[in-house]
Design a protein around this nucleic acid. Sequence first.
DNA 1: CATTGTTTGTGACAACTGTCACGATAAGGT
DNA 2: ACCTTATCGTGACAGTTGTCACAAACAATG
Lengths: 207, 207
Amino acid sequence: MSRKISSTGIERLALYYRYLTSVNGSEQAFISSAELAKAVEHTAAQVRRDLSCFGTFGTPGRGYDRAALEEKLSGILGKGKCQNVVLVGVGNLGSALLAYKGFQSQCYTIVAAFDNDAKKIGKHLKGLEIQDIEKLSDVVSQTGAKMAIISVPAGVAQEVVDALISAGIQGILNFAPARVVVPEDIVLQHVDFSIKLDRLCYGLEHA
Amino acid sequence: MSRKISSTGIERLALYYRYLTSVNGSEQAFISSAELAKAVEHTAAQVRRDLSCFGTFGTPGRGYDRAALEEKLSGILGKGKCQNVVLVGVGNLGSALLAYKGFQSQCYTIVAAFDNDAKKIGKHLKGLEIQDIEKLSDVVSQTGAKMAIISVPAGVAQEVVDALISAGIQGILNFAPARVVVPEDIVLQHVDFSIKLDRLCYGLEHA
DNA sequence: CATTGTTTGTGACAACTGTCACGATAAGGT
DNA sequence: ACCTTATCGTGACAGTTGTCACAAACAATG
Ligand SMILES: NC(=O)c1ccc[n+]([C@@H]2O[C@H](COP(=O)([O-])OP(=O)(O)OC[C@H]3O[C@@H](n4cnc5c(N)ncnc54)[C@H](O)[C@@H]3O)[C@@H](O)[C@H]2O)c1
Ligand SMILES: NC(=O)c1ccc[n+]([C@@H]2O[C@H](COP(=O)([O-])OP(=O)(O)OC[C@H]3O[C@@H](n4cnc5c(N)ncnc54)[C@H](O)[C@@H]3O)[C@@H](O)[C@H]2O)c1
């Protein structure tokens, strides 16, 4: 309870959580920080520090109760409350995201897909009808979605983000290689493949 | 020249570079740290600090010479040397990556695509024949590719990575939600959508 | 119930990262 | 030549993040 969780610490919590759920069938009721650390490629001290930010739920001599920890992490991350996600931009990448089964197993469900291309609107993909972007507000209200994923061209990213915010979306995952500005109370995350490739490139150069 | 570049600093350099190339047609020959900072949503001091790690190429009173800076950044990041990339796993995501035109404009070219599914091998996608994963070594030697992108299921990520390293690949961009281990001299970057969604979720919860 | 063995939670430290402020430096005009 | 103006490069500082080590806490066992 002593320290504020770091930004990257949150991502580690998500890793811990994913590991726990992935080995759900284990008969071991307890897991130590060392064991957890090994699974996610970090140090035991790091794991304990991260977890200690949200209370003390480990028992000395045994470790952490698997089920309890999983539950706790789920609560911390806010899983189970904001699962409904809308997707904007059903192009190459958007289609792949729609088809991805991994989101569901992680409690996220894409409940609606939007585009502004007349040729795509009305088509069905993975059991979801591609809807006109104009219907965004209505659908967001109906589904209660708080999160959105955007995979539209960089040039329109800002306007799409603005529309999403007007519609009531509070968290946005942006795949477009564009920096967009949002009000303070909106959470924004970028996923930027090209930048990661550049990082790789740099790493090779300076081996 | 004073300080070592930070890990996140490298990603900022890539952002600077991308911004410069994206506004290539500008008639302004010079750009100030303030201007550059605004474009990528950072501070002017940060920009200057990052750049100063690699020498001094700004001129007081004017700013940085656009063309020279672009050239310099290209050199630092190692662009133009490691453009050839191979892709392993042509599923939903892999297909989207193959179709992506943004990589090329950033000097990266996917020169070969691999899969182990007999039904996919031999098919053509975006002018590229999907090849048997067994041919990996040969193709890597022929093309001189140093970088690889993998979009295979998490369960086989490690074995694919091992194969890539045997084939001579030095940098790997991993889209599978799995931590893989590599020797020290191999550069590895993860792109993990689910974790980013979890971060969003946490942000919403703790608004 | 005391002893032993294990693992947690955290204070103290070290390393890293970003911000601020300002002296130094170059261009351009008078 | 000198002054003005704009902007860089960087030392010093502050805040953040990760590591280490160890006392405290609990389980197990005889
Ligand atoms: N495909 C990839 O592998 C990849 C990789 C990295 C980054 N990206 C980025 O992801 C984004 C999408 O890439 P893509 O390859 O799927 O492109 P795409 O052109 O195939 O898809 C973009 C989709 O967005 C739709 N769209 C355009 N304007 C819109 C608007 N105002 N409202 C709603 N929908 C709109 C288009 O109709 C299209 O269906 C781009 O910004 C791209 O840079 C893609
Ligand atoms: N689709 C998405 O939007 C998305 C999002 C996040 C993460 N991911 C991750 O990206 C990876 C790929 O996702 P996907 O949706 O494209 O899955 P997919 O099943 O559609 O594609 C996987 C491909 O890898 C191939 N493959 C399997 N084993 C192989 C091997 N040993 N060697 C070579 N090829 C092999 C399969 O034949 C298949 O074509 C997964 O790890 C997934 O978790 C995907």
